[in-house]
Design a protein around this nucleic acid. Sequence first.
DNA 1: CCCGATTGGTTGTCGATACAAGCAACGCTA
DNA 2: TAGCGTTGCTTGTATCGACAACCAATCGGG
Lengths: 167, 167
Amino acid sequence: MNDVRWLNSDELQAWKKFVAVVELLPGVLDSQLQRDAELSHFEYFVLAMLSEAPDRTLRMTGLASATNATLPRLSHVVARLEKRGFIERTPCLEDRRATNARLTDVGFEKVVDTAPGHVTTVRENVVDPLTAADVDDLDRIMTRILSTIDPEHRFNPGALGETQPTD
Amino acid sequence: MNDVRWLNSDELQAWKKFVAVVELLPGVLDSQLQRDAELSHFEYFVLAMLSEAPDRTLRMTGLASATNATLPRLSHVVARLEKRGFIERTPCLEDRRATNARLTDVGFEKVVDTAPGHVTTVRENVVDPLTAADVDDLDRIMTRILSTIDPEHRFNPGALGETQPTD
DNA sequence: CCCGATTGGTTGTCGATACAAGCAACGCTA
DNA sequence: TAGCGTTGCTTGTATCGACAACCAATCGGG
């Protein structure tokens, strides 16, 4: 097992910077949301995904997939958000094993109030330092990486149309 | 406060994929290292940074900066790694407030043993799905993002020469 | 139908990080 | 050389996520 293909200089340099971003970015997003809305980025993302769904409702499994989370993690988080009145859980009628998570009116308000500050943070730290070409490159590169690490290949088909206050 | 610049379609799509990668990649790196070496990616990175340093030694603050970590976090992690015999801490002679963290021979062995599997994982999930041009793009984009979020702008000057088994 | 296997979800426990507080050493200024 | 602010690091507490075990409902074959 001595035939290891080490990273060359360019690859190593890019990788180190990528690691730094992956390490630092969550903290940036979390602290703004924590400060302004008492929400972690993941919690915000859960609410945002629900706000886009038909009838603001998604099954736990679907929501887990939309937020790149494991089911146990999501279960804990939704339980907390339910206690705070942002989400309500109801049994699913078609499949009685399943649970529907629905964004309440209060939860929707929360997203609407929180979105502007969050988008500003995303712009300042990620989007605005990039050119339009960079954004295309970023999309292409992330798509390629996701093709390996995304367990469900949700992003491959490449649907998605115009959207709104999403994120 | 109604003059929010929402993300356009391209920006939103790229951002969502980027978020997915930031969410999923740590798990990929952690589980390989946990399985094969009982190390988290952060722990491995700490050992790797030390292995590159002169005399395999760095002050805690320098090591924190090299690994993009806060000092409390690093302090806990180094304490664990010290218990396992990979690192030893000694008081710094020049500045008696400071602590030197040094990679032991056992720790160096650990890095040497662990690096090949880790590099393979990084290749499979990140580098190999990309073209050489993609790697350049990734480097450029991450540099731009870091210029905002890296509290110390370590990556701007753009030094770094050829390197070895690093990472 | 009936039973084993799978799917959907929740819960409990443990380990790890963030944040704040604390302490010791340093260095500047007068 | 005294005092005050800063720097370097450690420790304690509270919170969050991973993992495994678990339960209930559904599906598929005989």
